[in-house]
Design a protein around this nucleic acid. Sequence first.
DNA 1: ACCTGAACACCGTTCAAGT
DNA 2: ACCTGAACACCGTTCAAGT
Lengths: 189, 189
Amino acid sequence: MRYQRKDVVERAIDVLDRHGLADLTMRRLGTELGVQPSAIYHHFANKQSLLAAVADELLRRGDRPLPESPWDARVSAICSQLRDAMLAYRDGADVVATVHAFGLGAAAPYDALVVALGDAGFPADLSRTAARTLLHFVFGHAADEQTHLQAGSDGAIADAPRDASDFEVGLSLVIAGIRLQQPTDLHQV
Amino acid sequence: MRYQRKDVVERAIDVLDRHGLADLTMRRLGTELGVQPSAIYHHFANKQSLLAAVADELLRRGDRPLPESPWDARVSAICSQLRDAMLAYRDGADVVATVHAFGLGAAAPYDALVVALGDAGFPADLSRTAARTLLHFVFGHAADEQTHLQAGSDGAIADAPRDASDFEVGLSLVIAGIRLQQPTDLHQV
DNA sequence: ACCTGAACACCGTTCAAGT
DNA sequence: ACCTGAACACCGTTCAAGT
């Protein structure tokens, strides 16, 4: 029963999706792998690194080729893809947000947004600020939605009725705000 | 040494600010109060409720009267005040975000935003979506900033240089996007 | 390279009983 | 109303030692 890093991450995602983040403990994961908890520390320095690897793999699995299209459609596609990737697994938004809060993770979507905005002619400063603003929205919205969905399945009361298009509306607000910052001579590019 | 709910919350904020969220345990708090950990369960059903009360108190302490001004300035003031309240205590953004992720907390700023937007003439649906979009930005930005500040004081490398006006720029992007949704006959109100 | 076994220093929560 | 004392069922992490 010898495992590599990759096997451990795969099993961790399995436990996450079946039992949730609260049950994704080093001890539980060890049991699932048929191994002592301490064995996992041969592959990861600590639980934080394991979670970072899990978050990266979740996002990697959601990776799709982006369409050739105007910058705003590309930005929208990156955000939607990120959202879909997080919602595809139980507590996925939580994991990605936790890892991001620790200062790691989601570097790929961030870079993709900065590039898309830079290509559209926005200055580098604004591109970075706008990219982070978009990520805050996507993370926050996904976490919110996953919490409410889960609260619903737990039998708790869903206090805020959420429309299916709520994400698109919020996203379009932010993108519209970014669009306004374009130099006027680029409005038709 | 008999305490009431309020005393427990105050001491919890004290521990939070001095030692951080990771050290705000029921056992630690009990020790600081000179009481058994189990005694806290007389005042709070569980740790989650305690944290919710802590988050509410943090926001309450940051409460300032809002200026009479156009809707966009009011919205901006609500967001800045929320941000300041979260950053005023160590790990404050983390606490508020955690509580919010659990489906509670930050109801006051949310309601204030919905009212400000509704008064400006936005339809109720859009007001709610815009209010949540703003909260996602403010929470995400504050958590990000607090993480990086703390990483800096821990001696870690601050990977993304953050400008002091970064919050204002991001916030103005979102508000500008909302402004575009105004019915044209209200643009000058 | 990968794992065991045992320990260390903790957690949140419950509950009968006390004042 | 507020608290004690003791227990239950867990955590993440370290480390010498094994193969």
